[in-house]
Design a protein around this nucleic acid. Structure first.
Lengths: 337, 337
DNA sequence: ATCGTAAGCCGAAGCGCTTTGGATGTAAAC
DNA sequence: GTTTACATCCAAAGCGCTTCGGCTTACGAT
């Protein structure tokens, strides 16, 4: 038999009002009564009914995330971790996470349902696209949200994203410190945001070191293994080949590794190699690849949740940004030229 | 300005009662009025407030799933898909999916919070363990749930699981049909449920064909690559080696493949190979491995959601089971002996 | 003795829906 | 012509919580 506010207040000889306010930390109840109330609540195992509270306050105490149905690219693998991180942090604020997935073509309808049905107080927009209709939609509806990934819009909004530029820099700085001067970059097609950003970091780091990037050492490759393989072959055929290489994604990275291996490369000797995101653990290797590692899914989830809480607290959107800091994890594939 | 029941009913000149019952398909409202009501509701964009409805009915219209925090083994990869499948199907019944994750040590507390807080009407228990305290807990509390994976308990409960036994059979039947008689099995440690079950299917299929399994051809190997590698080496060293091999998991499968390759094996020649779950796509191969494939995450999600709905509908638990059917996907690694 | 103030408490009105227990009218049954 | 039985519809009472406005009381100030 569940105990409710009424029973609790009667057992205390107080009004529901007072008990409610005591429990919710209002100042117009004496510290002594608050103690009594809290104690009695615990003793009786009182748990406020969230539905009633929500009806009274108008808030849903839940955050929504709608996930594009059937999206199964790389990022997916970490989805579970991100969700873990989000829920863990949200729980501290007594917020639930509502997950929906929907086919991309009816995605906006799902958003509408969630919002109009007042099922959530805010949304997390996963897998943002460069020009994202969902974000435009939420902005015109003035509904609170946090974007997981940046997008282009003039109106300020809260977002979390990875600091791809910094990752590019980190790799270059490491290689420069080892003494490399001719550093190559294999990057994914530039319509992809991250490729753009990592490349920018790569170039900036070179320039900061007083070097001017050699255009011939910067090659674009399709986002697949073959792409990485062929790009490496091309680089190695040059009259004046690079002494170090950064591959800006781990798909092409696998191909690049293969190409190097096919050419008799041994880790640590000859060409230094850094792969963004590292080589997936499914690929059996006897050595470790030096890599730029993204923050874990859990920490990303924490950041997202924090931003959601801030948005709901009404903090100015223009300040609600967070970049996930990549780190360099040193392996066996780089060394002095 | 959101329109509510009151406004809707006033605009129609009907009582809230009638409008409510019309919308909810009760029989004591004439078809004509129902039409009018439905139409007006759509015209005004009426969306019932779920919190109010929940408060009145006592149901939460949401299903919970709590995911062990930081669980990051193989199954994880499909987590997103499973969630997609669940939410898609639940949406058809107007149910939301609430996700929580929690450290294993406080998992039961999370369950308690969800239940006592009446946040969900039922739970999905993910990653069931052989003897699962969560299931015991839910059973004693008499709270509706569906287990994702079987467990041991005498009380009936609803579950979804993969038909591992059938998978084992499928592989053997295929090999038998190809003409193989000496078929080996490399299986994971038997404390793992799936190993137990796949092995049972393997043996049963042999017996059904009138063959008696050769104990020397059935080897247990640790659930890692080395395990698979060494098991194959052992099998190949035998005086009378098998002509075909089933590896009951894809982790050992990768090692097995490696071992075969190191011994000059070519796919389709010599030893036939079938790997349960196939070889992860991250491993670059020029040929396709014959495999036993599990149902997709989405279809598993659908099954889980269907079971939840049935449980809530009060169907007898003893009948609410569903086995995900594995299929054999033919590749290039098996052939006649 | 009176007033003002602040601290502490409470009554009652919602929040938006469902549902119980009739009320009303009309057609079929007697 | 009176019953009976439906078929429709509705008033009002909740569901369990928050919150607005107001009421006491105690006490130092006047």
């Amino acid at each position: 038999m569940k105990v409710n506010l009424k029973m609790l207040s009667e057992s205390l000889g107080l009004s529901q009002t007072t008990v409610s306010r005591a429990l919710n930390g209002y100042s117009d109840v004496s510290e002594a009564t608050r103690q009594r109330v809290v104690e009695a609540a615990r003793a009786l195992g009182y748990q406020p009914n969230p539905q009633a509270r929500q009806l009274a306050t108008g808030r849903a105490n839940a955050i929504g995330i709608v996930y594009p149905f059937g999206a199964s690219d790389i990022g997916d693998i970490r989805f579970g971790e991100v969700v873990s991180g989000i829920t863990e942090r949200l729980a501290e604020h007594n917020l639930d996470l509502l997950i929906h997935s929907s086919r991309p073509d009816v995605e906006l309808d799902t958003y509408r349902r969630l919002i109009d049905g007042r099922r959530v107080d805010a949304l997390i927009v996963a897998r943002t696209r460069a020009d994202d209709p969902r974000i435009r939609f939420l902005q015109t509806r003035q509904f609170p949200f946090v974007a997981y990934g940046r997008t282009v819009t003039s109106t300020p909004y809260a977002w979390f994203d990875f600091d791809n530029e910094k990752g590019g820099r980190l790799a270059v700085e490491r290689l420069l410190a080892l003494g490399h001067r001719r550093i190559a970059l294999i990057h994914a097609p530039l319509e992809l945001n991250f490729a753009q950003q990592r490349r920018a970091g790569f170039m900036a780091a070179l320039r900061d070191a007083g070097l001017k990037p050699d255009a011939k050492l910067i090659v674009e490759a399709p986002l697949n293994r073959i792409g990485g393989y062929e790009a490496v072959v091309r680089l190695m055929k040059m009259k004046n080949p690079p002494s170090a290489l950064l591959v800006d994604n781990n798909v092409a990275g696998v191909g690049a590794l293969r190409a190097l291996g096919d050419n008799g490369w041994k880790p640590g000797e000859g060409m230094s190699l850094i792969v963004y995101d590292g080589i997936p653990s499914e690929i059996p290797l006897t050595y470790r690849v030096t890599a730029i590692a993204q923050p874990t899914g859990e920490s990303s989830g924490h950041s997202l949740a924090d931003l959601v809480v801030d948005v709901l607290a009404g903090k100015p959107l223009a300040e609600l940004h967070k970049l996930g800091e990549p780190v360099l994890t040193v392996g066996d594939t780089d060394g002095q030229p």
